[in-house]
Amino acid sequence: MEMDFGGAESRRLPIYLLLDTSGSMAGAPIQAVNQGVNLLYNELMNDPSAIETVHIAVITFDSQAKMVMPLTELTQFNPPNLNAGGTTSLGAALHLLGSSLDRDIVSNSSNRKGDYKPLVFLMTDGMPTDNWEHQADAIKNRTKQKVATIIALGCGGGVETSTLKRITEVVLMMDSVTPDQITQFFKWVSQSVSTASVSAQAAGGGEAQAQLPPPPTGIQVVL
């Protein structure tokens, strides 16, 4: 006996990738990021729960912030080819993230179960060059509406952890910015997403929703 749900919207697990494409990422790092996004896509496409729930958006920031991929369901996702150059407009990226969350995310309501709590992975290798403080505070102070779990990764020593801490409490630091480390990070992102897609759907609801697997070697959690 088949049920007909008439194309009812199913709940989504929104994933936002905020990727630093400033000049310092040029060369091997940006290539590794491109490969990393591909890896993430392939990993998730082998996870049935991710296939059914994950939607990915990609926001890059260099001299300006761009939504290079709006929130797209995983099966339709086409990993972008990113190039690096310019400054580090983190503030603009956070602003774009905020407006995207407001626009994209469906909250729970009396007659609709909304999206799962979005996961945002922010990756940057340098200090912001724009006015980012206000945007950081705005994102971090979201407590009521359209809240997202933000994980910030600082690549190398060019990033002040205090900057990232102003955005989120979950800050990771990558010791050495090598292609392998970047790849490992995206592997970890895919594990985090899979974990989230499982626990969000888990029986009885997911109190463990924000649980993340331990980060790979060489990436440290900043206390």
């Binding site: 392939n42 082998n46 979950v170 392998d180 490992q184 649980q211 697997p213 331990p214 790979p216």
Partner: peptide, 29 residues
């Protein structure tokens, strides 16, 4: 660290995945 970032340290399968050195994903179906 665990008090800062809730980690699923009780899930052995995740740990095994972390320990993996291979980073190649299977191609998407």
């Amino acid at each position: 660290i665990e008090t800062v970032l809730e980690m699923d340290i009780e899930n052995p399968s995740l740990k095994e995945e972390i320990a993996e050195t291979t980073i190649e994903a299977a191609p998407a179906p």
